[in-house]
Amino acid sequence: MPATSPVQRADAARNRERILAAARAGFAEPGTPLSMAEIARRAGVGMATLYRNFPGRQDLLEALYTDQVDAVCAAAAEVEGSPGNALIAWVHRFAAFFASKHQIAAELLAQAEGPGPVLDRSRERVLAAGRPLLAAAQEAGEVRGDLTLEQVLDMVIAVSAIHGDPEYSRPILQTALDGLRRG
């Protein structure tokens, strides 16, 4: 069978998804150090398969981060409701994304000499996806007109930095988001 047969490509794609799923689940466990060997074990693949898909840890982290940014950006087009409600729903999605990917982003920053192109591009993509939601909500008079999307997302990031479990920080975030609404 040739090396580029459709069966092998499908198998390779499944292996890549298994690796990403195992890494995603592993990074969701707070405080658990996650080695490449542990990711391979959880995915049920060998180290050669892992490194064929992701030559280094940074490659894997960037793929995980990019997948989640894709989901947040796609969510901007999927939220429903009035413009204000759509914005708030999307900001909640962003908050969940940020909380779950904080460890990955921190490791990406630690490995690089600064934010790097993946984090920079990701921020710009998220802002581009969310700006129409904020503009529509502001034009409809449903949210304050004196804030930029950068300010709104920085507020969410600041709330996410508060120590405590999600049950502790959820009402704090909701109070902050309630402050976006016009009185």
Rank of each mutant, 00 (worst) to 15 (best):
Q111D: 08
L119W: 00
A95E: 09
F98G: 02
I104Y: 08
E107C: 02
K101N: 12
L149E: 11
D154A: 15
V91Y: 06
Q151P: 01
P115I: 04
G116Y: 00
L134P: 02
I157M: 12
I157V: 15
A99I: 07
L87I: 04
R131G: 02
A110P: 01
E150P: 02
I88E: 09
A95C: 07
S122N: 04
R144V: 14
V118I: 11
A140F: 07
A140C: 08
P83H: 04
E139G: 09
E124A: 13
A99R: 15
L119K: 07
A106M: 08
A106T: 13
P132D: 13
G145E: 13
V152M: 13
V143P: 00
P83T: 10
Q111S: 06
L149V: 10
L134M: 13
D165M: 12
E139C: 03
R125G: 05
P132K: 14
L149S: 09
I88V: 14
A105F: 09
A110T: 02
S122F: 05
Q111T: 01
I157A: 14
V152Y: 04
F98C: 02
A158H: 09
L87A: 05
P115H: 01
I88N: 00
G164R: 09
D120A: 07
Q138M: 10
V118F: 02
A86C: 03
I157Q: 09
E124S: 12
L119Q: 09
Q151D: 04
D154H: 11
P115L: 00
V118L: 04
D165E: 14
S100I: 00
